[in-house]
Design a binder for these strands. Structure first.
Length: 471
DNA sequence: TTTTGAGTTGTTCGA
DNA sequence: GTCGAACAACTCAAA
C-alpha cells in the first residue's frame, strides 16, 4: 500500500529545488499543506500578507489547485489532519527563526505521541547554522571569518535537487481558499505596487535569469547606484522561498567563475542574508535587544513628528525622501537607500531603531525577521559587527555620489523634477529664481530640511560618546 | 595564554 | 581640488 505523507509548506513556496518536498514525493503520495498560523507566529506585515496571498495562488496553481490551505494554530491543525487522514510521515523544511523553531518542537512532540515519522530538511539557507562555528565552537559574530569558514566547506552549498515527481493524495476534502485568509484587507494596495512585482516561483526564476544575464556583469559597481537596474531584487522571492539560495548560488556559478569579481560580490551579498539568519539563530534576541548591551542606555529621543515626516518621505532631504517614497510606492527600497535613511533616522533624528524596524516590517515586500533586525542593528551601530558610531551618512553627499544626475530622486519626487541637478540634492540652497523656474515653492510644494545636518551629527556623536564614559 | 591583525557600505578637516 | 589622517576603542578570531 502506498505511503501517505504530508509536505508542510512554510517559507518554501516552490516545487523545484525543495528538498523536503522532493523527498516526500519519493516516499509516497503527498498531501501538500500550508497553514496560515497567526496564533503561534508573529503577525505578518501588510505587504508580506499581500505577497503571501499571490504566492499561495501561484503555488496552488502549480499544484493544479490541490494545495490544502488551513488557518489557525499549527498544532491544532496537525492534530486534526492526523486524526482524519492518518498519514505515515511528515516532511518540512526548517525555518530558522525562534518562533518557528519553537513550533517545530511542539509539533515533534505531537508526531512522536502519534507515532508518525518525520523528516526535516534545510531548504532555506546555504549552510546549516549549527555547522559554521569558530575554533571555540561558538558562533561567529563577524561576517568575514564566518564567510570564509562557510566557503571552505567543499560540498556546500548543496546542489539543487530539481523538480519532484508529485503524486497528490486526492481523497482529502478539507482546506479553505486563499481568499478566505484575511490577507488583503489591511491596506489599499496601489497599482504601483502591483506594477512593481510578478509573484511566484516561475517569476522568481525569470528574475534570476534576467539578473544573471543583464545586470550581474556590472553588479559590483552598479549595485551602489539606485537609479541603475543592477541589483537582483530577489529578496522577496528568497524570503518566501519561491527560489532557494542554493539555486541562486549555483546558477550564478554556472555562468561565472567565483573569481569573477561581479559574481563574487553578489555571492557575498547573498551570504550577508545568510549571516543575518545565522545571527538570529544563535542570538534569538536579535529582533528586539541591542547585541551590544551598552546601547541599552542610549538617549533616544521620542519625536513623533520627526518619525512621521521620515515615514512619509517629507524630511526635506531629497535622497532620504526618495528612498522612503520608493518604499511606500513599491514595497522595496534599494540597499544603499536603506543605509542612508536608516542612518538618518537613528543618527540625525535620534529615533530608536525599533521604530524604523517596525515601519520597514509593514511596508517591505521582503520583510524578514532576520534581515530586518540585523540590518537595523548594523545601521544603529549596536550590532556586533556594526558600522562604527562616527560613520554618519551625509544625505547630500550620498546623493551626489550615488545618484549624480538626480535620476532616482526625480523618479520618486515629482515635485522636484524640474530642479536642475546642481540643486537637486539641496533645494533650499537654490536661488528663488531657480526654484520659481522649476515650479517649486519650498515649504509648500516640498519641505525645508527638518534638521540641520551638521548640528544633528554633532549631537549624535556626543550621544554615542556618552555610552563610553562609565562603561 | 598571549599576541596580533583586522573589522561591508563614511565624513570632515587641514595640509 | 586632492589626499591622508583622524575619528575611539573594542571585540573578535586565529596563530
Amino acid at each position: 500500500m502506498t505511503r501517505r505523507v504530508i509536505h508542510w509548506f512554510r517559507q518554501d513556496l516552490r516545487l523545484s529545488d525543495n528538498p523536503a518536498l522532493f523527498n516526500a514525493c519519493k516516499a509516497g503520495k503527498v498531501l501538500p499543506v500550508f497553514i496560515y498560523d497567526a496564533v503561534s507566529l508573529p503577525e505578518l506585515g501588510h505587504r508580506s500578507k499581500w505577497w503571501l496571498y499571490h504566492s499561495l495562488q501561484s503555488l496552488n496553481h502549480s499544484l493544479d489547485g490541490r494545495l490544502k490551505i488551513f488557518e489557525g494554530d499549527t498544532q491544532d491543525i496537525f492534530l486534526d489532519i492526523i486524526k482524519k487522514y492518518n498519514p505515515n510521515q511528515v516532511f518540512w523544511n526548517k525555518v530558522y527563526s525562534p518562533d518557528n523553531l519553537a513550533l517545530d518542537s511542539k509539533l515533534l512532540r505531537i508526531l512522536k505521541a502519534s507515532n508518525i515519522q518525520h523528516e526535516i530538511y534545510n531548504g532555506t539557507l546555504l549552510w546549516d547554522p549549527e555547522k559554521i562555528l569558530n575554533q571555540d565552537h561558538s558562533p561567529y559574530k563577524v561576517f568575514t571569518p564566518f564567510y570564509k569558514k562557510a566557503c571552505s566547506y567543499p560540498d556546500s552549498p548543496e546542489l539543487p535537487v530539481g523538480m519532484p515527481d508529485i503524486h497528490v493524495i486526492d481523497d482529502v476534502f478539507d482546506g479553505i481558499d486563499v481568499d478566505d485568509l484575511d490577507l488583503l484587507s489591511q491596506e489599499q494596495i496601489s497599482d504601483r505596487l502591483h506594477a512593481s512585482w510578478l509573484i511566484g516561483e516561475a517569476h522568481a526564476r525569470r528574475q534570476l535569469n534576467n539578473f544573471v544575464s543583464n545586470s550581474l556583469p556590472n553588479y559590483k559597481h552598479g549595485r551602489d547606484f539606485p537609479s541603475l537596474p543592477n541589483v537582483s531584487r530577489l529578496s522577496p522571492y528568497l524570503h518566501f522561498g519561491e527560489i532557494s539560495p542554493n539555486y541562486v548560488w549555483h546558477e550564478v556559478l554556472n555562468v561565472n567563475r567565483f573569481t569573477d569579481f561581479n559574481a563574487e560580490k553578489f555571492l557575498t551579498e547573498l551570504s550577508w542574508r545568510e549571516f543575518a539568519h545565522y545571527l538570529l539563530y544563535h542570538f534569538p534576541d536579535l529582533p528586539s535587544k541591542n547585541l551590544q548591551h551598552k546601547f541599552d542606555k542610549f538617549p533616544w529621543s521620542n519625536n513623533y513628528k520627526y518619525l512621521e515626516l521620515w515615514k512619509q518621505g517629507m524630511t526635506g532631504y531629497p535622497i532620504i525622501d526618495a528612498g522612503m517614497r520608493e518604499l511606500i510606492q513599491t514595497g522595496y527600497m534599494h540597499n544603499r537607500l536603506r543605509m542612508i535613511v536608516g542612518s538618518f533616522l537613528v543618527k540625525n533624528l535620534l529615533q530608536h531603531w525599533h521604530l524604523g524596524r517596525d515601519w520597514f516590517w509593514n511596508l517591505l515586500v521582503d520583510a524578514d525577521i532576520a534581515n530586518n533586525s540585523a540590518g537595523w542593528q548594523w545601521v544603529a551601530g549596536c550590532g556586533s559587527d556594526a558600522a562604527p558610531y562616527f560613520r554618519v551618512f551625509n544625505p547630500v553627499l550620498q546623493g551626489k555620489k550615488f545618484d549624480p544626475n538626480g535620476e532616482y530622486i526625480r523618479r520618486y519626487i515629482p515635485e522636484l523634477r524640474e530642479v536642475p541637478s546642481e540643486y537637486i540634492f539641496t533645494p533650499w540652497e537654490a536661488p528663488n529664481s531657480v526654484l520659481g523656474h522649476s515650479g517649486v515653492v519650498l515649504g509648500k510644494d516640498y519641505p525645508f530640511p527638518i534638521v540641520d545636518l551638521k548640528e544633528s551629527r554633532v549631537q549624535a556623536l556626543e550621544a554615542f560618546d556618552n555610552l563610553k564614559i562609565d562603561k
